[in-house]
Design a protein around this nucleic acid. Structure first.
Length: 317
DNA sequence: CGCGTTTGACCAGCGC
DNA sequence: GCGCTGGTCAAACGCG
Protein backbone atom coordinates (compact mmCIF):
# COMPACT_ATOMS: atom_id res chain seq x y z
CA UNK A 1 0.00 0.00 0.00
CA UNK A 2 2.81 2.25 0.69
CA UNK A 3 3.94 3.07 -2.74
CA UNK A 4 5.93 5.66 -1.11
CA UNK A 5 9.21 5.99 -2.67
CA UNK A 6 8.76 5.70 -6.34
CA UNK A 7 8.27 9.34 -6.84
CA UNK A 8 9.65 12.35 -5.26
CA UNK A 9 6.59 13.41 -3.52
CA UNK A 10 8.04 15.71 -1.05
CA UNK A 11 5.57 18.46 -0.99
CA UNK A 12 5.57 21.61 0.86
CA UNK A 13 7.13 24.86 1.54
CA UNK A 14 9.27 25.73 4.40
CA UNK A 15 10.33 28.95 5.85
CA UNK A 16 13.38 29.68 7.73
CA UNK A 17 15.05 32.63 9.16
CA UNK A 18 18.41 33.51 7.91
CA UNK A 19 21.08 34.91 10.05
CA UNK A 20 20.31 38.27 8.57
CA UNK A 21 16.83 38.07 9.84
CA UNK A 22 15.29 37.32 6.54
CA UNK A 23 12.70 34.80 5.86
CA UNK A 24 13.87 32.05 3.67
CA UNK A 25 11.73 29.66 1.81
CA UNK A 26 12.85 26.14 1.76
CA UNK A 27 12.10 23.07 -0.13
CA UNK A 28 11.34 19.96 1.69
CA UNK A 29 13.73 17.69 0.16
CA UNK A 30 17.13 17.35 1.44
CA UNK A 31 19.31 19.30 -0.83
CA UNK A 32 22.29 18.99 1.33
CA UNK A 33 21.35 22.06 3.19
CA UNK A 34 21.03 24.13 0.08
CA UNK A 35 17.60 25.44 -0.36
CA UNK A 36 16.30 25.71 -3.82
CA UNK A 37 13.82 28.17 -2.59
CA UNK A 38 16.26 30.69 -1.44
CA UNK A 39 14.14 33.14 -3.20
CA UNK A 40 12.63 34.99 -0.44
CA UNK A 41 14.10 37.98 1.17
CA UNK A 42 11.61 39.09 3.64
CA UNK A 43 12.43 41.02 6.76
CA UNK A 44 10.64 39.74 9.71
CA UNK A 45 10.26 40.42 13.33
CA UNK A 46 11.13 37.49 15.46
CA UNK A 47 9.06 35.00 13.63
CA UNK A 48 9.16 31.35 14.31
CA UNK A 49 10.67 29.07 11.83
CA UNK A 50 7.98 27.35 9.96
CA UNK A 51 8.14 24.39 7.76
CA UNK A 52 5.04 23.24 6.09
CA UNK A 53 4.63 19.73 5.00
CA UNK A 54 1.83 18.63 2.87
CA UNK A 55 0.80 15.16 3.65
CA UNK A 56 -1.82 14.44 1.12
CA UNK A 57 -2.77 11.02 2.14
CA UNK A 58 -3.62 9.19 5.18
CA UNK A 59 -0.72 6.93 5.63
CA UNK A 60 1.79 9.59 5.40
CA UNK A 61 0.19 11.83 7.74
CA UNK A 62 0.89 9.99 10.83
CA UNK A 63 4.36 9.49 9.64
CA UNK A 64 4.82 13.13 9.36
CA UNK A 65 3.14 14.06 12.50
CA UNK A 66 5.25 11.83 14.56
CA UNK A 67 7.96 11.98 12.09
CA UNK A 68 10.64 12.89 14.43
CA UNK A 69 10.30 9.53 15.93
CA UNK A 70 10.28 7.73 12.72
CA UNK A 71 12.95 9.50 10.89
CA UNK A 72 10.71 10.98 8.34
CA UNK A 73 11.48 14.51 9.09
CA UNK A 74 15.06 15.38 9.17
CA UNK A 75 16.02 18.62 10.60
CA UNK A 76 19.30 19.57 9.22
CA UNK A 77 21.03 21.44 11.90
CA UNK A 78 24.35 21.43 10.25
CA UNK A 79 23.51 24.20 8.00
CA UNK A 80 22.90 26.84 10.52
CA UNK A 81 20.19 28.71 8.87
CA UNK A 82 18.48 26.25 6.72
CA UNK A 83 16.56 23.22 7.56
CA UNK A 84 15.27 20.60 5.33
CA UNK A 85 12.62 18.06 5.71
CA UNK A 86 12.20 14.77 4.03
CA UNK A 87 8.71 13.60 3.78
CA UNK A 88 7.69 10.16 2.86
CA UNK A 89 4.46 10.26 1.04
CA UNK A 90 2.38 7.26 0.38
CA UNK A 91 0.24 7.56 -2.60
CA UNK A 92 -3.19 6.49 -1.74
CA UNK A 93 -6.38 6.91 -3.50
CA UNK A 94 -7.92 9.78 -1.83
CA UNK A 95 -11.48 8.77 -2.00
CA UNK A 96 -12.20 10.84 0.95
CA UNK A 97 -15.04 9.29 2.56
CA UNK A 98 -15.45 12.31 4.57
CA UNK A 99 -13.99 12.14 7.94
CA UNK A 100 -16.33 14.84 8.91
CA UNK A 101 -19.20 12.61 8.17
CA UNK A 102 -17.67 9.92 10.17
CA UNK A 103 -17.22 12.25 13.03
CA UNK A 104 -20.72 13.44 12.84
CA UNK A 105 -21.86 9.92 12.76
CA UNK A 106 -19.83 9.17 15.75
CA UNK A 107 -21.17 12.05 17.63
CA UNK A 108 -24.72 11.26 16.90
CA UNK A 109 -24.49 7.64 17.77
CA UNK A 110 -22.30 8.11 20.69
CA UNK A 111 -24.95 9.76 22.65
CA UNK A 112 -26.53 6.43 23.23
CA UNK A 113 -23.54 4.60 24.42
CA UNK A 114 -20.36 6.06 25.61
CA UNK A 115 -18.40 2.89 25.60
CA UNK A 116 -19.35 1.56 22.25
CA UNK A 117 -17.95 3.63 19.54
CA UNK A 118 -19.47 2.91 16.21
CA UNK A 119 -17.06 1.22 13.97
CA UNK A 120 -16.29 2.75 10.72
CA UNK A 121 -17.82 1.10 7.80
CA UNK A 122 -14.78 1.13 5.69
CA UNK A 123 -12.16 -1.41 6.38
CA UNK A 124 -9.60 1.18 5.65
CA UNK A 125 -9.87 4.37 7.47
CA UNK A 126 -9.81 7.28 5.12
CA UNK A 127 -8.56 10.56 6.26
CA UNK A 128 -8.42 14.05 5.05
CA UNK A 129 -5.15 15.26 3.74
CA UNK A 130 -2.93 16.42 6.47
CA UNK A 131 -0.45 19.17 6.53
CA UNK A 132 2.24 19.31 9.08
CA UNK A 133 4.02 22.44 10.05
CA UNK A 134 7.27 22.49 11.82
CA UNK A 135 7.51 25.63 13.76
CA UNK A 136 10.40 26.69 15.78
CA UNK A 137 8.73 28.37 18.62
CA UNK A 138 8.35 28.26 22.33
CA UNK A 139 4.66 28.48 21.88
CA UNK A 140 2.96 25.20 21.42
CA UNK A 141 -0.29 26.42 20.14
CA UNK A 142 0.29 28.88 17.37
CA UNK A 143 -2.53 31.18 16.57
CA UNK A 144 -3.78 30.39 13.13
CA UNK A 145 -6.92 32.41 13.39
CA UNK A 146 -9.28 29.58 14.05
CA UNK A 147 -10.68 28.54 17.34
CA UNK A 148 -9.74 25.16 18.56
CA UNK A 149 -10.96 23.00 21.33
CA UNK A 150 -8.66 20.50 22.84
CA UNK A 151 -10.21 17.09 23.05
CA UNK A 152 -7.37 14.92 24.02
CA UNK A 153 -3.79 14.55 24.90
CA UNK A 154 -1.60 11.56 24.65
CA UNK A 155 1.89 10.67 25.49
CA UNK A 156 3.84 9.90 22.41
CA UNK A 157 6.08 6.96 22.19
CA UNK A 158 9.76 7.82 22.21
CA UNK A 159 9.00 11.36 23.02
CA UNK A 160 8.91 13.07 26.37
CA UNK A 161 6.41 15.52 25.04
CA UNK A 162 2.74 14.79 24.84
CA UNK A 163 0.68 15.24 21.74
CA UNK A 164 -2.44 17.29 22.04
CA UNK A 165 -5.49 16.91 19.88
CA UNK A 166 -7.61 19.85 18.89
CA UNK A 167 -10.76 20.24 16.92
CA UNK A 168 -12.18 23.32 15.30
CA UNK A 169 -14.89 24.70 17.49
CA UNK A 170 -17.13 25.64 14.66
CA UNK A 171 -20.21 23.56 14.35
CA UNK A 172 -19.99 20.84 11.76
CA UNK A 173 -16.42 21.67 11.07
CA UNK A 174 -14.36 18.61 11.40
CA UNK A 175 -10.95 20.06 11.05
CA UNK A 176 -8.51 18.62 13.48
CA UNK A 177 -5.16 19.69 14.59
CA UNK A 178 -2.47 17.92 16.46
CA UNK A 179 0.27 19.67 18.25
CA UNK A 180 3.39 18.09 19.54
CA UNK A 181 6.96 18.90 20.11
CA UNK A 182 9.75 17.23 18.34
CA UNK A 183 11.63 14.93 20.58
CA UNK A 184 14.74 15.63 18.61
CA UNK A 185 14.49 19.33 18.93
CA UNK A 186 12.14 20.49 21.66
CA UNK A 187 12.14 23.92 20.20
CA UNK A 188 10.29 22.63 17.18
CA UNK A 189 6.56 22.39 17.35
CA UNK A 190 4.93 20.02 14.94
CA UNK A 191 1.44 21.09 14.08
CA UNK A 192 -0.58 18.79 11.90
CA UNK A 193 -3.81 19.94 10.36
CA UNK A 194 -6.37 17.57 9.03
CA UNK A 195 -9.55 18.31 7.24
CA UNK A 196 -11.33 21.17 5.66
CA UNK A 197 -12.90 24.08 7.39
CA UNK A 198 -16.52 24.26 6.41
CA UNK A 199 -17.06 27.74 7.64
CA UNK A 200 -15.83 31.19 6.87
CA UNK A 201 -12.61 32.32 8.26
CA UNK A 202 -13.42 33.55 11.72
CA UNK A 203 -12.98 37.01 12.95
CA UNK A 204 -10.87 37.22 15.95
CA UNK A 205 -10.38 39.92 18.50
CA UNK A 206 -6.78 40.05 17.52
CA UNK A 207 -7.44 41.93 14.42
CA UNK A 208 -8.22 39.41 11.83
CA UNK A 209 -10.56 41.49 9.85
CA UNK A 210 -10.98 39.27 6.92
CA UNK A 211 -13.69 36.81 6.39
CA UNK A 212 -12.79 33.97 4.25
CA UNK A 213 -15.29 32.75 1.79
CA UNK A 214 -15.94 29.19 2.49
CA UNK A 215 -15.85 28.07 -1.01
CA UNK A 216 -13.15 26.08 -2.51
CA UNK A 217 -11.64 24.89 0.64
CA UNK A 218 -11.31 28.24 2.09
CA UNK A 219 -9.73 28.73 5.35
CA UNK A 220 -8.20 25.39 5.49
CA UNK A 221 -7.72 22.39 3.42
CA UNK A 222 -9.65 21.02 0.66
CA UNK A 223 -9.15 17.95 -1.25
CA UNK A 224 -10.66 18.21 -4.59
CA UNK A 225 -12.32 15.25 -6.08
CA UNK A 226 -10.66 15.80 -9.32
CA UNK A 227 -7.01 15.77 -9.52
CA UNK A 228 -6.64 15.38 -5.85
CA UNK A 229 -5.89 18.99 -5.49
CA UNK A 230 -5.61 20.01 -1.97
CA UNK A 231 -5.18 23.43 -0.68
CA UNK A 232 -4.32 24.80 2.61
CA UNK A 233 -4.61 28.21 3.92
CA UNK A 234 -2.60 29.31 6.80
CA UNK A 235 -1.95 32.55 8.41
CA UNK A 236 1.14 34.15 9.60
CA UNK A 237 0.36 35.92 12.78
CA UNK A 238 3.97 36.23 13.55
CA UNK A 239 4.56 38.16 10.43
CA UNK A 240 2.02 40.78 11.10
CA UNK A 241 4.71 43.31 11.56
CA UNK A 242 6.24 42.67 8.24
CA UNK A 243 7.62 45.62 6.57
CA UNK A 244 5.07 46.78 4.08
CA UNK A 245 7.63 48.19 1.78
CA UNK A 246 8.46 44.85 0.48
CA UNK A 247 7.37 44.99 -3.11
CA UNK A 248 5.85 41.59 -3.08
CA UNK A 249 3.75 42.47 -0.13
CA UNK A 250 2.74 45.95 -0.80
CA UNK A 251 -0.41 45.04 -2.57
CA UNK A 252 -1.44 42.42 -0.19
CA UNK A 253 -0.55 43.33 3.28
CA UNK A 254 -2.94 45.94 4.43
CA UNK A 255 -4.41 43.53 6.86
CA UNK A 256 -2.93 43.03 10.18
CA UNK A 257 -2.25 39.80 11.81
CA UNK A 258 -4.08 36.93 10.33
CA UNK A 259 -4.92 38.74 7.26
CA UNK A 260 -1.66 37.80 5.85
CA UNK A 261 -3.01 34.55 4.75
CA UNK A 262 -1.39 32.29 2.37
CA UNK A 263 -2.85 29.44 0.55
CA UNK A 264 -0.88 26.65 -0.85
CA UNK A 265 -2.40 24.56 -3.44
CA UNK A 266 -0.71 21.35 -4.08
CA UNK A 267 -1.49 18.53 -6.29
CA UNK A 268 -1.92 15.11 -5.00
CA UNK A 269 1.12 13.28 -3.98
CA UNK A 270 0.89 11.22 -7.06
CA UNK A 271 1.53 14.28 -9.04
CA UNK A 272 5.14 14.94 -9.09
CA UNK A 273 5.66 18.47 -8.08
CA UNK A 274 8.37 19.32 -10.40
CA UNK A 275 7.93 23.00 -10.30
CA UNK A 276 7.28 25.41 -7.59
CA UNK A 277 4.56 27.07 -9.52
CA UNK A 278 2.65 23.88 -9.35
CA UNK A 279 3.09 23.75 -5.71
CA UNK A 280 1.93 27.21 -5.13
CA UNK A 281 -0.90 27.96 -7.40
CA UNK A 282 -3.36 29.87 -5.47
CA UNK A 283 -3.48 32.54 -2.93
CA UNK A 284 -6.51 33.96 -1.34
CA UNK A 285 -6.67 36.94 0.86
CA UNK A 286 -9.20 37.70 3.46
CA UNK A 287 -10.51 40.98 2.21
CA UNK A 288 -11.24 39.63 -1.15
CA UNK A 289 -14.91 38.92 -1.15
CA UNK A 290 -14.60 37.14 -4.35
CA UNK A 291 -14.10 33.49 -4.17
CA UNK A 292 -13.06 33.40 -7.74
CA UNK A 293 -9.44 33.93 -7.53
CA UNK A 294 -7.46 36.36 -9.35
CA UNK A 295 -5.05 34.64 -11.53
CA UNK A 296 -1.95 35.21 -9.68
CA UNK A 297 1.10 33.41 -8.69
CA UNK A 298 -0.12 32.55 -5.32
CA UNK A 299 2.30 32.49 -2.53
CA UNK A 300 5.02 32.92 -4.97
CA UNK A 301 3.69 36.28 -5.86
CA UNK A 302 3.59 37.33 -2.29
CA UNK A 303 6.84 36.05 -1.17
CA UNK A 304 9.11 36.07 -4.08
CA UNK A 305 10.29 39.17 -5.75
CA UNK A 306 9.06 39.54 -9.23
CA UNK A 307 12.46 39.41 -10.75
CA UNK A 308 13.21 36.18 -9.11
CA UNK A 309 9.86 34.84 -9.95
CA UNK A 310 10.54 35.21 -13.58
CA UNK A 311 13.16 32.69 -13.13
CA UNK A 312 11.15 30.01 -11.60
CA UNK A 313 12.91 26.88 -10.73
CA UNK A 314 12.20 24.28 -13.29
CA UNK A 315 13.00 21.35 -11.21
CA UNK A 316 12.84 20.84 -7.55
CA UNK A 317 14.74 17.72 -7.56
C1' DC B 1 -23.68 29.47 32.58
C1' DG B 2 -20.98 28.69 28.66
C1' DC B 3 -16.81 27.36 26.97
C1' DG B 4 -12.46 25.18 27.09
C1' DT B 5 -9.17 21.96 29.37
C1' DT B 6 -7.87 17.81 31.80
C1' DT B 7 -7.71 13.10 32.14
C1' DG B 8 -8.80 8.28 32.42
C1' DA B 9 -10.98 4.94 29.71
C1' DC B 10 -12.13 2.95 25.53
C1' DC B 11 -11.58 1.66 20.68
C1' DA B 12 -9.14 0.67 16.26
C1' DG B 13 -5.26 -0.53 13.68
C1' DC B 14 -1.11 -2.82 13.29
C1' DG B 15 2.77 -5.92 14.08
C1' DC B 16 4.33 -10.04 16.02
C1' DG C 1 -4.85 -13.65 19.80
C1' DC C 2 -2.26 -10.41 22.21
C1' DG C 3 0.03 -6.31 23.21
C1' DC C 4 1.26 -1.78 21.87
C1' DT C 5 0.20 2.67 20.30
C1' DG C 6 -2.47 6.33 18.34
C1' DG C 7 -6.82 8.50 18.35
C1' DT C 8 -11.17 9.72 20.49
C1' DC C 9 -14.74 10.23 23.95
C1' DA C 10 -16.92 12.39 27.71
C1' DA C 11 -17.30 13.33 32.66
C1' DA C 12 -15.25 16.31 35.74
C1' DC C 13 -13.32 20.43 36.47
C1' DG C 14 -11.67 25.30 35.97
C1' DC C 15 -12.25 29.87 34.48
C1' DG C 16 -14.26 34.20 33.11
Amino acid sequence: MANSTSFSSDVGVGFDVTSQGYLEMLGFQDYGGVSIFDLLQQPINSPPEILMVNTPTQQVSSSVSCSSNEGVVNVDEENNNTRSVDVLVDEDDDDDDDDDDVDQEKISTNTTSKQLKPKKKNPKKQREPRFAFLTKSDIDHLDDGYRWRKYGQKAVKNSPYPRSYHRCTSVSCGVKKRVERSSDDPSIVITTYEGTHTHPYPMTPRGAIGIMPETAGFGGFSSGDTGGVSSFLFTQPYYQQLQPQQPYFQNHTPMPSLSNSLSFNTTNASTHLSSYSNLVQERRFCPSPSSTLLPDNGLLEDLVPFQIRKDEPKELI
